[in-house]
Simulated assay, not measured.
Amino acid sequence: MDQELLHHFYDLRQLLIDKWAPAIIVTLAHGKMRRADILTTINSFTYGEEWTVQPKQLQDSILSRTLKRMTEEGLLVRTQEDLRSFPAEVYYSLSPEMEEFLTVVEPAAAWARRHADLLARAKAHRRQTEHGDADQSGGVGADSPDPSPRLA
């Protein structure tokens, strides 16, 4: 069971490893949207200084590639409506599996709210070690290769 649990943890990590995937998933949580609306919504988010990762403004070209990849992976559904209009009205929504995923993630988000102090300490430590203040113990930084074990 331990190896299987570990395997699933790494599967979930791969699902969300893309810089913009979490923001896209949260943005589409309330229903389908057009690409321009997704872009506007994500770029309206504010990120606190305490965040380990400080996303820059999402560019339309990056959003287009990310939406395409997430659709190909089965995370999103792309639909075209009113084919008579030009350009065609294209919408993105979460796949049923990702809608289910959000319901499963909500308790984890509640856990994160309850343990904000723990997360803040972990973020501060990671930020400190990523800026070269870490001891020379060989820890893994954010830019290191993926340390995920290759489980059979």
Score class of each variant (00 low, 15 high):
6 L>E: 09
7 H>W: 12
7 H>G: 07
9 F>K: 03
10 Y>Q: 04
12 L>R: 09
12 L>W: 04
13 R>K: 13
17 I>Y: 04
17 I>G: 02
18 D>T: 06
19 K>W: 07
19 K>Q: 15
20 W>M: 00
25 I>E: 03
27 T>R: 00
28 L>S: 00
28 L>R: 00
29 A>W: 01
30 H>N: 12
30 H>L: 10
32 K>C: 03
32 K>R: 14
33 M>T: 02
37 D>F: 11
39 L>A: 06
41 T>M: 11
41 T>Q: 05
47 Y>V: 14
50 E>R: 08
50 E>N: 06
51 W>K: 14
56 K>F: 06
57 Q>F: 12
58 L>W: 00
59 Q>F: 13
64 S>K: 08
70 M>P: 02
71 T>V: 03
72 E>G: 03
75 L>F: 09
75 L>H: 02
75 L>T: 03
77 V>A: 06
78 R>I: 00
78 R>Q: 10
80 Q>V: 12
82 D>V: 01
87 P>I: 11
91 Y>R: 14
93 S>I: 05
93 S>R: 09
94 L>D: 00
96 P>C: 01
98 M>R: 01
98 M>Q: 02
99 E>L: 08
100 E>H: 15
102 L>P: 09
102 L>V: 07
103 T>P: 02
104 V>F: 08
104 V>Q: 02
105 V>T: 14
105 V>Q: 08
106 E>Q: 15
108 A>Q: 08
109 A>L: 13
113 R>F: 05
113 R>N: 14
113 R>W: 07
115 H>L: 08
115 H>T: 05
120 A>V: 03
121 R>S: 15
123 K>R: 13
124 A>R: 07
124 A>M: 08
125 H>I: 13
126 R>A: 11
128 Q>T: 04
129 T>C: 15
130 E>Y: 05
131 H>V: 13
132 G>T: 04
132 G>W: 04
133 D>Q: 15
135 D>I: 12
135 D>A: 14
136 Q>C: 09
142 A>D: 06
143 D>Q: 11
145 P>G: 15
146 D>N: 12
146 D>I: 08
147 P>C: 10
148 S>D: 08
149 P>K: 05
151 L>P: 01
152 A>S: 11
152 A>L: 15
